[in-house]
């Protein structure tokens, strides 16, 4: 619905990709580990290889968690923007289909958070 207004009412998105200096926003979330209260937001270059997420960003963010060391990467399942997804680690974010404000969620089988409470 258009906004009920007293005149023309059209605006640009305040978060359009061109406002991020060559980066695009990416949200990453480790499922069943809600000790991290929400998905993590990153500004990332679309040319960055997906491997950098797995090898740099995620360990930095989640390394504190006692289950992080137990993650079996060959068993991890991924979702990209609500669809099942198998990342190509050596391809770029853009080549993997990640766009501006994409959400990447991942599940680590056998790991259900501290005491199985999704913490």
């Amino acid at each position: 619905m258009p906004v009920a207004s007293i005149g023309p009412y059209q605006f640009e998105s305040r978060d359009k990709v061109s406002n991020f200096h060559g980066n695009q926003l990416t949200y990453l979330h480790w499922e069943e580990h809600n000790m991290y209260c929400a998905a993590l937001a990153y500004p990332l270059p679309p040319t960055m290889p997906f491997r950098a997420i797995v090898e740099n960003l995620l360990p930095e963010a989640y390394g504190y968690h006692p289950e992080w060391a137990k993650v079996k990467w060959d068993q991890v399942t991924w979702m990209l923007d609500g669809r099942p997804f198998i990342p190509n680690l050596d391809a770029s974010l853009a080549e993997n289909g990640l766009g501006h404000k994409s959400v990447v969620r991942f599940w680590t089988p056998g790991l259900h958070g501290i005491g199985g409470t999704a913490t």
Partner: peptide, 19 residues
């Protein structure tokens, strides 16, 4: 219902990343 209103949201996290 009113997308044109909320696409203007000043979201603090995004504002930090925009510099």
């Amino acid at each position: 219902y009113e997308p044109e209103k909320y696409i203007q949201s000043w979201l603090p996290v995004h504002q930090i990343y925009q510099g």
